[in-house]
């Protein structure tokens, strides 16, 4: 015989506990947890990618690019920018060099200069240097570059990376705090529902106690019921959260480096939703997000089970 088989003991917990309201509350809290968790994972993912990109990308600005280099030790070209490019090509740790052309500079400066163009301005040449992971420009190389082209500015992105990390850490902390808060409120709501159930079954619980039912038995009966309701609520809340999460993942895909789907029409949400859910279904979302969302019903169930156990056992202490 199954040790934990439920017996007809008269507790009738399906009528004693406020099923619908408990289920709805747990579903709402699970929805909040899912959205908060998604925001945290999204922020983490974006900051990591941006920080990684920022760490590997260096911008070199060469003023007066068309002038002749200051020293003639380098015979790679007749202008400063060509001399700088030639020197950079010989350096280790560099994956790619790219000098921005006029159109790219126009596009870069458009927010500040508008459509007037940059032709009339004495702009420096801008070179994007893509380093290998962990790669650096040596001090000797930097010194050489500034000698060839005085005033050359090498913009490292360490400060940005540090700030991004700080922002990401802060967001994660806030998300963790929010999840903990929602979990605590959830436990309190479950606790109150359990107390209500105990109150309405006070007489029956007392009779069972007098017949020799252990605290563990009574607590298990309540906890099992609460756990089932919590699981259903957690599942419902998580399922409801999937469409908005899928859309968010879809919209964030270009920023996080994932492949974006073809739908870009912000005025028509149905195709976006459809594409988002399809992409979600095919694993476009980060694995950590999927695992976390999958865990929510089980975590909520555990919270419900533990809370009910504690509440019932404490309540039973008033009986000898």
């Amino acid at each position: 015989m199954n040790k934990h088989k439920r017996v007809r003991d008269g507790l009738a917990l399906s009528r004693a506990l406020p099923d619908r309201s408990l289920l709805t509350m747990v579903a709402a809290m699970s929805l909040l947890i899912a959205l908060t968790f998604t925001a945290a994972v999204g922020a983490q993912s974006l900051s990591e990618r941006w920080a990684r990109g920022a760490a590997n990308l260096i911008t070199v600005q060469v003023p007066d690019p068309d002038k002749a280099p200051v020293t003639d030790n380098h015979t790679t070209g007749g202008s400063r920018v060509e001399a700088v490019l030639g020197t950079l090509k010989t350096a280790p740790d560099i994956v790619q060099l790219h000098r921005l052309n006029e159109q790219e500079l126009d596009a870069l400066l458009k927010p500040w200069l508008g459509n007037t163009g940059t032709a009339a301005l004495p702009l420096p040449a801008v070179i994007e240097v893509d380093l290998t992971a962990g790669g650096v420009l040596s001090d000797d190389l930097v010194s050489t570059l500034t000698t060839i082209a005085p005033g050359t500015l090498i913009e490292k992105n360490d400060d940005w990376r540090s700030q991004l990390h700080t922002v990401a850490r802060s967001l994660l902390f806030c998300a963790g705090l929010a999840i903990a808060l929602v979990g605590t409120i959830g436990a309190a709501v479950i606790g109150m529902a359990t107390r209500l159930g105990l109150g309405s079954r006070r007489e029956s619980v007392t009779i069972l106690h007098e017949l020799g039912a252990s605290d563990g038995y009574v607590a298990r009966r309540f906890a099992s019921r609460v756990a089932v309701l919590s699981f259903l609520g957690g599942l419902a809340g998580t399922l409801v959260s999937l469409p908005p999460i899928a859309i968010l993942s879809h919209l964030m895909a270009p920023f996080s480096g994932a492949v974006s789907s073809t739908t870009q029409n912000g005025e028509n949400w149905f195709p976006i939703l459809k594409d988002s859910l399809l992409a979600f279904w095919h694993g476009a979302a980060p694995q950590s997000l999927l695992i976390g969302l999958g865990c929510i019903p089980f975590v909520v169930t555990l919270i419900g089970w533990v809370t009910a156990q504690v509440i019932v056992r404490v309540w039973l202490r008033r009986l000898p």
């Binding site: 015989m1 040790k3 088989k5 017996v7 007809r8 003991d9 008269g10 507790l11 009738a12 007489e203 029956s204 007392t206 009779i207 069972l208 007098e210 017949l211 020799g212 039912a213 038995y217």
Partner: peptide, 21 residues
Amino acid sequence: FRLMPTLSVADNIALPLRLQK
């Protein structure tokens, strides 16, 4: 008497044995 209001006579009588599995 302290009978379980939600149980029938037979189930009330059987309750101690059921608790003992």
